[in-house]
């Protein structure tokens, strides 16, 4: 079980829990504003862009090359950017904080 906190563009803080699946699915299932997950998680739409809190970067891990290439051309991406469909939910990411892009 992992608890994950999303901070949306209107500064709402929402904490949700899951045991499996991707962080994008978790966000969509909980109607987190700003995460649409249009492509269903195949890394083709960038509608699941989040910024990982600096202190959580180690827990969450780094993006693959395909994800990095995608982020390079995403609006306002920075070193904390991830496409959250590429992050799996597991105990390892318990308590991380993700700020939704845009």
């Amino acid at each position: 079980m992992a608890k994950i906190t999303f901070i949306t563009s209107n500064n709402e803080k929402i904490t949700v829990e899951a045991t499996a699946g991707s962080v994008m699915e978790l966000a969509v299932n909980n109607n987190i504003q700003g995460i649409d997950g249009d492509c269903g998680g195949v890394c083709s739409c960038a509608t699941c862009h989040v910024f990982v809190a600096p202190e959580d970067v180690d827990k969450v891990g780094v993006a693959s090359e395909i994800e990095t290439d995608m982020l390079e051309l995403a609006d306002d991406a920075n070193e904390y950017s991830r496409l959250c469909c590429q992050i799996s939910v597991s105990d390892a990411i318990d308590n991380v904080v993700l700020t939704v892009a845009k």
Binding site: D38, C39, C45, D69
Partner: peptide
């Protein structure tokens, strides 16, 4: 069941397909 599929079938960036949600 291709898992990672960064295709550009619906375009890319600013003008990406507005009708993609409906088409999907």
């Amino acid at each position: 069941d291709r898992k990672i599929n960064p295709h550009v079938g619906f375009g890319f960036s600013h003008h990406n397909c507005l009708g993609a949600t409906h088409a999907r």
